[in-house]
């Protein structure tokens, strides 16, 4: 069991999201950083998509009320277990009464707590993700509050071969990002594929998306990021019909300042789409805080597939390594 002692608002339970309910207008939802969640689960021997706690505001303080194997992955926050500093992307065992404190990340945005066996909350429409807008899923359909007590499901018992635990190379170090011309220090590059309305933008705008930097504004959250930069213009302003959209879509409202829809995006929208960020790069956006700088590069479907395979290979390596570092208890 875990008792939340202190948490700012907007921290929620999330898994890889719910798939198959779009006919009701229910989009995928789920974590902002799929690789960090999957890495935490890999360290613990959980299913890849087991739900974890997504922390995007800090500090967070919680107490383990019984012995629990857990992992902290994602953002570069400082994690202390009863005062002892944990390495980045680390899984270890907490004793009953241990307190875990996560403090604000230095450069990144979202940290994940996963536990062996997973959290004991019911799946709603096939997922344990919190759907904040419609108040269902996760922990009572809402963000975590101090005083919440979360139960775990019984894991297959195991020991870490090394009592200190086991760690993963953070995805940002292990999985190569795309690059672009005149890339500046600290900028995040993501790959995108041109979308249906790409051709309706004027040539300067089509070029500008990939040649100029985009600032992540304060109007950025789990639903989407509002960017600011050189305005993008269309050849003609036409009303769009409402259509289904996917996380990663780069919409351009009449202001010309793009919006990227993310994990908790509406399932449908009405703005023209210049491109869509590939699935394998969405986690990089999830780790980019307001004030950060985003760069886009166009890519092909083949490159998108290769990026997907690179992420998959990283997780497969991690599952293998972590498997060696745990031993089952009969």
């Amino acid at each position: 069991m875990i008792e939340i002692l202190e948490t700012p608002p907007l921290n929620t339970m999330q898994d890889l999201g719910r798939v198959g309910y779009r006919q009701h207008g229910i989009g995928r939802g789920g974590v902002m950083d799929r690789l960090a969640l999957a890495a935490g689960n890999a360290l613990l021997g959980n299913e890849e998509g087991e739900a974890g706690l997504e922390f995007q505001l800090f500090p967070v303080r919680l107490r383990f009320t019984k012995e629990t194997a857990f992992a902290v992955t994602g953002a570069d926050c400082e994690a202390r277990l009863s005062g002892r500093r944990l390495p980045a992307w680390w899984a270890t065992r907490a004793e009953a009464g241990d307190e875990l404190v996560l403090s604000s990340p230095r450069k990144e945005m979202r940290a994940y707590l996963t536990i062996a066996g997973g959290f004991d909350v019911p799946k709603v429409l096939g997922s344990r993700s919190t759907h904040a807008r419609d108040s269902f899923g996760g922990y009572h359909g809402r963000a975590l509050l101090a005083g919440d007590v979360l139960q775990s499901r019984a894991p297959e018992p195991f020991l870490f071969r090394d009592g200190a635990g086991v760690g993963a190379t953070p995805a940002a170090e292990a999985v190569a990002a795309a690059t672009c011309e005149d890339l500046a220090e600290g900028e995040t590059v993501v790959r995108a594929i041109p979308a249906a309305e790409y051709q309706t933008f004027d040539e300067a705008s089509r070029n500008a998306l990939c040649r100029t930097p985009w600032k992540v504004t304060a109007r950025s959250n789990r639903q989407g990021y509002a960017l600011s930069g050189t305005p993008l213009r269309r050849n003609a302003l036409l009303e769009m019909r409402s259509h289904a959209i996917v996380p990663g879509v780069i919409q351009v409202p009449p202001s010309g300042q793009p919006l990227i829809q993310l994990a908790e995006a509406n399932s449908a929208g009405g703005y023209p789409k210049i491109g869509v960020v590939i699935e394998a790069d969405l986690w990089r956006i999830g780790q980019l805080p307001p004030g950060g700088t985003l760069r886009f590069v166009w890519c092909s479907l083949a490159e998108a597939r290769a990026a997907e395979e690179a992420a998959e290979a990283y997780l497969a390596r991690l599952r293998r390594l972590a498997g060696y570092c745990r031993s089952a208890i009969a």
């Binding site: 995108a192 594929i193 041109p194 979308a195 249906a196 259509h243 289904a244 959209i245 996917v246 990663g248 879509v249 789409k273 491109g275 869509v276 960020v277 590939i278 699935e279 394998a280 479907l301 998108a304 597939r305 997907e308």
Partner: peptide, 11 residues
């Protein structure tokens, strides 16, 4: 058209 690498859109 393609919607990234996760979906296809028919208009």
């Amino acid at each position: 058209s393609f919607c990234g690498n996760t979906a296809v859109l028919l208009d």
